[in-house]
Amino acid sequence: MTSLSTGAEAMDGIYRYQRHIYDLTRRYYLLGRNELITLLQPPAGGSVLEIGCGTARNLVLAARRYPQARLYGLDISVEMLKSAERTLRNNNLEARVTLAQADATRFDAEALFGQAGFDRVFCSYSLSMIPGWETALQQAGKAVSAGGELHVVDFGSQTGLPDWFARGLRNWLARFHVTPRDRLQDAMAAIASETDGTLSFRPIYRDYARLGSIRLPG
C-alpha cells in the first residue's frame, strides 16, 4: 500500500509549480464542475466534504452558493493545500472551510474533522488521478451520512466524440497522470446496491465527462 508521504510526494512533484496556474488552465476542460455544485443542494446548516479539493476552487463556489453550509476538503498534496489555504484567505472563507491532508483511499473523517459523516460528499475530477480510485470511491461513500448524497464528476469515455479527439485527449491526460475511469458507472452502481442507495448517472458533453450521484436512504 502506498504510504501517505509517498503519495503526497508524487502529487507534490506534479503540482509544485502547476498549482499556480491550475485554475486558469483547467477551467477550459474540467467540464461539469459547476453543474455538480448546483446539484449538491445540502440542507440548511448541512456539511459538505470534497475529496481531492485541490486549490479549493470548488469549495469557494459551494460556500458562495450555500452560505449556511459547513465545508470541508481533503487532499494528499501539501502543495495543493498551500494554494487552497491562500484561496480561502483571499475569499475570507477560512472560518467556514476546514482543510486537511489525507489519502483519499484511507482517511479517517472523524480524526480529521471531528465528524464521521457528511450530508454531501463529492469528487470532482479527482478519481481519474487516484491509482486506487475504486477504493477512494468506496471511502467517499462511507463518509456520507444517512439520507445524504455522494456526487462525482470526471472524464467520460468520449463515446460521442470523434475517435481522433478521444485518443488525443487520453494521450494528453496521461502526461499529467490522469486516466479516465471507464468503469465509473459500474463502481457507483455497486456502491448504490450495497447501501440500498439510489443512483443517478449520465454522460455530459457527448460523454466528454460523466456526472453521477448516489442518494442514501434516510
Rank of each mutant, 00 (worst) to 15 (best):
P162R: 03
A104E: 03
Q138K: 13
G114K: 04
D103F: 00
F165R: 06
W164S: 15
G160K: 10
C123Q: 09
V121T: 12
L150F: 08
F107A: 04
D163P: 08
D108W: 01
G156W: 00
F118T: 07
A111M: 05
S124G: 09
D108Y: 06
I130D: 01
G156L: 01
S128Q: 02
A109T: 10
G148V: 02
F155E: 00
A146R: 14
S145Q: 15
T159W: 07
A100F: 09
R167A: 13
T135V: 15
H151D: 00
V144M: 13
V121Y: 09
Q139P: 11
V152T: 04
A140G: 11
E134I: 03
D163L: 14
D163W: 09
Q139I: 01
E149K: 12
L99D: 15
Y125A: 00
F155T: 01
T98P: 09
F118D: 13
E110F: 02
A100T: 11
V152R: 05
Q138F: 04
F155A: 00
S145P: 10
Q158V: 08
Y125E: 00
L161I: 06
G114A: 04
G132V: 03
C123K: 07
T98Q: 15
F107M: 03
G114L: 00
G147M: 05
P131R: 11
D119L: 02
T105K: 11
G117M: 05
G156D: 03
T105E: 11
A140T: 03
A102Q: 04
V144G: 13
L99G: 11
V152E: 03
G168A: 11
G147H: 07
D103E: 05
G147F: 03
A140D: 08
P162H: 08
F122L: 10
W164C: 08
D154M: 01
G168M: 07
T98C: 13
P131A: 09
L161E: 09
Q115T: 05
Q158A: 14
A116R: 10
A111G: 11
Q115I: 00
L169A: 13
V144C: 14
F118S: 14
G117L: 14
V153C: 05
E149S: 15
D154Y: 02
Q115D: 03
L161G: 12
A166Y: 06
R106C: 14
Y125V: 00
V153D: 02
K142Y: 10
E134P: 09
G148M: 04
P131G: 11
G141E: 06
T98H: 12
D103H: 07
L99K: 09
R120W: 01
D154L: 01
S126R: 02
F122C: 06
T98L: 12
A116Y: 05
G160C: 10
F113H: 12
A100H: 11
D154R: 01
V152Q: 06
G148I: 00
A100Y: 07
T159F: 08
